[in-house]
Amino acid sequence: MQQRKEQLPPGFRGFLVRLGRIDRRWIYLAVAVAIGVPMLAELRLPEVPEKKARATFEAIESIPEGSIVLLSFDYDPASEAELEPMANAMVHHCASKGHRIVFMALWPLGKQMADKTIDSVLKYYHPDKVEGVDYAQLGFKTGNEGVIKLLANSIDGAYTTDAAGTAISEIPLLANVRSVGDFKLVASISAGYPGAQQWVQYADSAMPEAFKLVGGTTGVQSSQLLPYFPTQMEGMLIAVKGAAEYETLVTEKYPVTESPERLGIGRERMGPQLVAHLLIIALIVLGNISMLAARGLKGGAR
């Protein structure tokens, strides 16, 4: 930061130039307001599902009822806000469709994420589902893609027991599941490495025809995954927008009466999102205007 005094042009132009050098904490405050106010006002907007969310929905719809699916929770609290809505909707979708779900995690805190969804969605909306028969929680295992690599050959090669310490051979649900290839669908709710990309590289590539692969991804990671859609990944949910669209699709087909908000978190977060996005646009515009105003000044905008 330069300390030297410089001659600012008078009037509006000077104001614009000064604006460009504003203390960044004002911007932080603006972000807080942009998110806080619409949240307090409970701004809600309708969602129109687009192609990728539809493809994800269709992938889960199209496999026969009662199929065994693998949901890998490859995220942690840092990305929970983006991915939990997808996870909730997906578990509700699979359970409503009658699929049997195997949960696992490639991230150390992923098991906690899965537990949360099991408690708040699976056990809540589908209390008739029995652990071990309708669903199983394998939990976390260290090794990143190494875990997928083992799963591709055998489940019990990667997991000795499930998360509660029951031997894999004692779990009825897994009696006929030898490897990843015996699942009809694999979904990775993924926040980065290891995640959906590794599922493509190590599981889908090993047996491209065996199962459908869908991914729920964070905004940051989705760019990296786009080239895999639609040949290697049949469905993709991009950021909270994708979550909101998917929630809409799921709750339209499988509505719930009690506490529907658990399947509407994504849509809830789209309201503050609108204002935040407008703020970012405004900031970019202001930054550029200020640059134009400062053009030609000594020590001007950089």
Partner: peptide
Amino acid sequence: TATMFAMLAFYVASAAFRAFRA
């Protein structure tokens, strides 16, 4: 952990204002 990463929202806004010049 969640808040640590949420801080990036502030930084991304600041970057949008300062670094995105046409």
